[in-house]
Amino acid sequence: MVSEGYSNVRGGLAGRRRSWMGWQFVGPFMAVFALVFLAPIAYSIYLSLFRTRLIGGTSFVGADNYLGVLQDPQFWSAFGRVALFLVVQVPIMLFLALLVALAIDSGRLYGTAFFRISVFLPYAVPAVVATLMWGFMYGTRFGLIGNINEAFGLSLPDPLSPDLVLASIGNIVTWEFVGYNMLILYSALKVVNPSLYEAAALDGAGQLRIIWAIKLPALRGALVIATIFSIIGSFQLFNEPSILKTIAPNSVTTYFTPNFYAYSLSFAGQQFNYSATVAIVMGIITMIVAYIVQLRGMRKAV
């Protein structure tokens, strides 16, 4: 809409010898964008319309794969799992990140820089390594849990049992991403004009009041962004369950998360078409949820 108005104004002067200069600048990006972004999506959509069988080859099936996914109990159980993860783990993680960000921003801590970097450090550990490390600590026979049990004569439940494995993954993900989210929130706090704090102090506002009336409203945009990243992250959960499956094969099913389901379908079952469909359906769900959160978050901000 903006661009239309723009071209109307310019139309009389430059309309005839239209300059391709802009496209030359954008061209390299567009080429790469089309190759690595649009082409895979288009190809996945193309794949999702066919079915290949070991006996009988490939045939066009229209929307059959989509109907199949929508009625697939394994897909919905995977979706339910990541939805539960989203509702429980993301608030805990963001709340912790918020606490840490406010604590560092309060200026009342000693060694802020050290504290900040050490909270952020887990994010620098690759997810695969982090999961291997935690997987070892979770071990009830030779791991940390086993050692604690031995030292204190306890019998803690196995964190990798089917009932607890999702919570254990939540713990790993929280450990990994609190620092990352803290950094997003902390940088949002940094741009608040200090004169607001001075004015509030002159008016006799305490720290809690300042947090409530100044800092939290200032954080709203950053919180929405962090939430959306976390939603995407939850729905994409893959590394942690896929690594833990090797040490807890009965707790992590091949359809533990939607992404892991898509992976198993194509790499173990050769069902590329159905796998592509699962990925597309999940991508659309993720878009919808992220979009709703964003609309709500932004509306409140006004």
Partner: peptide, 9 residues
Amino acid sequence: ALTVSLTAA
């Protein structure tokens, strides 16, 4: 959101 989810497929 879309890209990451399609990469696996």
